Measured scan of single mutants.
Amino acid sequence: MSSSSWLLLSLVAVTAAQSTIEEQAKTFLDKFNHEAEDLFYQSSLASWNYNTNITEENVQNMNNAGDKWSAFLKEQSTLAQMYPLQEIQNLTVKLQLQALQQNGSSVLSEDKSKRLNTILNTMSTIYSTGKVCNPDNPQECLLLEPGLNEIMANSLDYNERLWAWESWRSEVGKQLRPLYEEYVVLKNEMARANHYEDYGDYWRGDYEVNGVDGYDYSRGQLIEDVEHTFEEIKPLYEHLHAYVRAKLMNAYPSYISPIGCLPAHLLGDMWGRFWTNLYSLTVPFGQKPNIDVTDAMVDQAWDAQRIFKEAEKFFVSVGLPNMTQGFWENSMLTDPGNVQKAVCHPTAWDLGKGDFRILMCTKVTMDDFLTAHHEMGHIQYDMAYAAQPFLLRNGANEGFHEAVGEIMSLSAATPKHLKSIGLLSPDFQEDNETEINFLLKQALTIVGTLPFTYMLEKWRWMVFKGEIPKDQWMKKWWEMKREIVGVVEPVPHDETYCDPASLFHVSNDYSF
């Protein structure tokens, strides 16, 4: 037999072997998808029940369902290793196997995995149920939502704001400190077992692309791009910072340095994350009609249902689908009040099986009107990829998912749209002054938050990498806050605090 014939037969044999492996992989994935749908849905439903009704029974049910899901994933991840990716030609099959071969938290021992889940659930519970009591009246206690958040959004009393700011960190942050220390250790162990340098590197892996249509993007490039983007917006932020400082000097004349940092408790919310609520103090042309339409919403008797129905109309107007019937029947759109304790931070849920929901303790404000559009943007994205195989139902990356939500809320905030839905009067006219007011309001929300987020994530990356010793977490946190964000702590904090974890995203294990 000629050498060319042998070569042809060899190629046929290799192709047949690849085809056999690929067919086996497809069969394996079909079985996995069928089983995963049910187990993931049960786990998601148990998590939803806990988040909307925080009880010991629900946390136990959530843990049990989560353990079943984790055990299943660990088993299936091991089985998926049997299919070598280099022998799979079908890109859809390869991407699913690649996702499943990534072990995630299931790489930890059973004891450590359970401990990590306990830590995460405990931190979430402390954050959502933590109360601050009035020292003069111990029976008068406030949760973060709505009590403390209400103070931080609306109060102009310097000392009341300081009390709310400090009490939240003292009551909740200190409880979270030992848990967060354990969390860092276990998450790093999980990341390294998955061949990442640390948990920050694991997060950045979400943005990594290897040879898809000839395109590559590394975790290191992400760090470079983040640094570059921050340097680009820094001059604009510094101008905004100086303008806000001048306006705060008028409101709090004896508390603000004309050349120094801004006190952290005066920036519009509990964390200084969004400066939106400073608009009334900083509006350049106050004689113009108010483009913050909160009062109009209240006057027109809007409620949470109306807010979300208007958001749905907005999405339908640009060619996107209505929310499902189940969305309206199962979402929690208002604070249950004293009936039950719930996690009030707005979140969009894709539970699986076409079950999409939003959890939000909606208030009738323009801020929540825009947040509703943001969260519904997440749901629209979830619905758009719902037909994909189970392992591919995700956003391109976390940042893109947020961008989908944010672009919709930005569009909904324009005076033209607000006028079209009757929240600005029919005779409202846009001119240079109203446009400047609008742009300032947008800058308070968007530009003001960028250094906050950059600095927070930089601190977390450094902590996970071990570049900040545990006994210097708070020292470095406030050094970076002053240097990068231009914000100063109103009272000193020692290493018993854990100020970063006083933010939902940190205590609940979300990256930005």
Rank of each mutant, 00 (worst) to 15 (best):
N33H: 14
K68N: 12
Y50L: 03
A25N: 00
L95I: 07
E23H: 12
N51C: 07
D38A: 01
A25D: 01
K31N: 02
P84E: 07
L95E: 12
N61C: 13
I54C: 06
Y83G: 01
N90M: 15
Q42T: 13
Q60M: 11
L45P: 02
L91Q: 09
A46W: 03
Q60L: 13
E35M: 14
K26Q: 13
A65V: 13
A46Q: 03
V59H: 11
T92C: 15
T20W: 02
A46K: 03
E57L: 05
E75K: 15
Y83Q: 00
N51D: 06
N63Y: 08
D38S: 01
E57S: 05
V93H: 00
D38T: 01
A25W: 00
Y83F: 05
N63D: 12
V59A: 13
L29C: 00
N33G: 06
N64K: 14
T27S: 14
A25K: 02
T27W: 15
T20E: 08
I54Y: 06
N33V: 07
E22M: 04
W48M: 00
Y83T: 01
W48F: 00
L91N: 14
V59N: 12
E56K: 13
L73S: 06
E56Q: 09
E23K: 14
D38E: 04
I54V: 11
K31Y: 15
N51I: 06
D67E: 09
L73Y: 04
A65T: 05
K68M: 04
K26Y: 04
D30I: 15
S19P: 15
E75W: 15
D67V: 09
D30N: 03
A71K: 13
F72I: 04
T20N: 07
L73M: 09
K26V: 15
E22A: 03
L45T: 05
T92Y: 15
Y83N: 01
Q76C: 14
Q96C: 03
D30E: 15
E35W: 04
M82F: 11
N51E: 02
Q96H: 04
M62W: 09
Q89D: 15
E75Q: 15
K68C: 07
N33K: 03
L91Y: 11
K74N: 11
L95V: 08
E56C: 06
L39Q: 14
N90K: 15
W69P: 03
E35N: 06
Y50C: 05
Q102S: 09
L29T: 01
K31C: 02
Q98D: 13
F28L: 02
L45D: 02
Q89K: 14
E22H: 04
Y41C: 02
A46V: 03
D38C: 00
N61S: 13
Q24P: 08
E57P: 04
V59W: 13
Q96S: 03
K26F: 06
T20G: 07
K74S: 07
T20Y: 02
E57Q: 04
A71E: 10
Y41W: 00
Q89E: 15
N63S: 05
M62G: 03
Q76G: 02
T92W: 15
E56T: 11
I21L: 03
L39G: 14
T92A: 15
I21M: 01
L91S: 14
N33C: 15
Q98R: 10
Q42N: 03
A71I: 06
H34Q: 02
D30H: 01
M82H: 11
W48R: 03
L39E: 14
Q102V: 11
A65F: 10
P84N: 03
Q98I: 13
N63C: 11
Q96D: 02
E56R: 07
V59E: 11
W48V: 00
E23N: 14
F40I: 05
L29Y: 05
Q98N: 11
N64R: 13
S19C: 03
A71V: 10
E56F: 06
E57V: 05
E37Y: 01
L91M: 12
T92V: 15
Q42I: 15
Q76T: 15
N64T: 14
N51Y: 08
E35P: 01
T92F: 15
Q60N: 11
F28N: 00
N33D: 15
K74E: 07
I54S: 06
Q60D: 10
K74G: 11
K68I: 06
Q102Y: 05
E37W: 01
M62T: 05
D38G: 02
D67P: 02
T20H: 04
T27L: 15
F28W: 04
N61Y: 11
Y83V: 14
Y50M: 05
D30V: 14
V59K: 10
E75M: 14
N63K: 13
Y83W: 05
A71M: 07
Q98E: 13
Q96P: 14
E37L: 04
Q76P: 03
E56A: 12
D38I: 01
N33R: 02
Q102E: 12
F72C: 03
P84M: 04
H34Y: 02
Q24H: 03
N63R: 14
N90H: 15
I54T: 06
A46E: 03
A65S: 02
E75R: 15
L91A: 14
N33Q: 13
Q60G: 10
N90T: 15
L91T: 14
L91W: 14
L95R: 13
N90A: 15
N61G: 12
P84C: 04
T92S: 14
A46T: 05
Q98P: 01
N51A: 10
T20R: 07
S19D: 03
L39W: 09
M62I: 06
A25H: 00
Q89Y: 13
K31V: 01
S19V: 14
A46F: 04
L95A: 13
K74Y: 07
F40Y: 09
W69E: 04
E22G: 06
I54M: 07
M82S: 05
P84S: 09
A65L: 09
K26E: 13
V59S: 12
F72H: 14
K26L: 11
K74H: 12
T27N: 08
E35Y: 02
K68P: 01
Y83P: 01
K26D: 15
N64W: 06
N64P: 03
L39R: 15
A65P: 05
L79Q: 08
M82V: 02
H34M: 05
P84D: 11
V59M: 13
A71R: 13
T20A: 10
A65I: 13
L29F: 15
N64E: 04
F40L: 13
Q24W: 04
Y41L: 03
F28Y: 14
S19H: 08
K26C: 09
Q102W: 13
K68Q: 06
L79G: 05
K31F: 14
